[in-house]
């Protein structure tokens, strides 16, 4: 059992990286507009299916990895402009219900277009096989996933902390009125921010499709762990989402190894422990990326 420890730990980190990136997307949207996007998982699934269809039509995996999330972003911004935007002035409850309804509709639409069962979506040949990490071997595709997710999160951190637009986003999270009074069109901020969240979901969706499989409900399966990630990491903190995601990933993979029956419940146990010690989550009071 113990010789499985290192690979299983690494599996946990890969899983955790997924939770983190989905949670960051959720947090971005929640922090700025108070919208709890229950349809976030649907956008993951959408990007996965889009990538599947693109590859089926002969495009390369690499093209699909970028194009599918971008198409999902276009759909996402259209949804934000038409369905979410009118609800910003209302209680968060309204947008929660609306996006929940949207996720149910999306699931049926996926069934209609791509069928009720899972479809095969596998990594390209260059990424199949295993790579040696020196002390163990590990599937190349999973290493690739970690690399892409780390690059994506780093790029996001750079965008938020080093660009003018990112500065405006961070300011708007604190005070949307003042940022408007300084000449920034907040509606554009909302749309771009929503699109950013969806892009992260889309990247995760394509990668998850290659690792965990692709079915009408596959994105939603990652949504609940992502919410738990946000809560453990602390509302408002993107850095907290990274830590929270990795913790949950490791917790799940370790319980899978030692007490398989408890793997489902382990993240909730972790959440209960964290919340009883720090009710606001691990990094709940920190600013976003510093």
């Amino acid at each position: 059992m113990f010789h499985d420890l290192a690979p299983q730990l690494f599996n946990g980190l890969v899983l955790g990286a997924f939770y983190a990136i989905v949670a960051i997307g959720l947090s971005l949207i929640m922090n700025l507009t108070g919208t709890i996007n229950m349809a976030h998982g649907s956008f993951m699934t959408l990007a996965g299916y889009l990538a599947y269809s693109l590859v089926l039509r002969g495009t390369s995996f690499w093209f699909a990895l970028i194009a599918a999330p971008l198409i999902a972003v276009i759909v996402g911004i259209a949804v934000e402009r038409t369905l979410v935007r009118p609800l910003y002035r209302r209680e968060p409850f309204y947008s929660l219900l609306m996006t929940f309804g949207l996720s149910l509709m999306a699931e049926e639409i996926f069934r209609l277009i791509w069928g009720p069962n899972g479809v095969p979506f596998s990594a390209p040949a260059a990424l199949s096989g295993a790579a040696s990490l020196g002390f163990m071997t590990f599937p190349t595709f999973r290493i690739f996933i970690v690399v892409v997710l780390v690059i994506t999160i780093s790029a996001l951190a750079f965008f938020l902390t080093r660009t003018r637009f990112g500065l405006r986003l961070r300011a708007a999270v604190q005070d949307t009125e003042m940022i408007a009074a300084l000449g920034t069109n907040t509606q554009v901020l909302y749309a771009v921010n929503f699109g950013l969240g969806i892009f992260l979901a889309g990247i995760a969706g394509v990668l998850a499709a290659g690792m965990l499989g692709l079915s009408p409900t596959s994105g939603n399966a990652l949504l609940m762990p992502a919410f738990v990630t946000v809560i453990i990491g602390g509302m408002g903190s993107l850095f907290g989402s990274i830590v929270g995601g990795l913790l949950i990933g490791i917790a799940i993979s370790m319980t899978t190894l030692f007490i398989p029956a408890a793997s489902e419940v382990s993240m909730y146990v972790l959440m209960a422990i964290v919340l009883s010690v720090r009710p606001r989550g691990l990094f709940g009071e920190e600013g976003i990326f510093g």
Binding site: L167, R168, R170, A171, A181
Partner: peptide, 30 residues
């Protein structure tokens, strides 16, 4: 508000309304 601001109307609100998590310089850059 953003259009009015772009016409050259500055606003110094009651209670200052800083972006508290941003630095002095970042507040100015905004």
């Amino acid at each position: 508000a953003y259009k009015v601001a772009r016409l050259g109307v500055g606003y110094v609100p009651e209670g200052r309304r800083m972006f508290r998590d941003l630095t002095t310089l970042e507040n100015l850059q905004l």
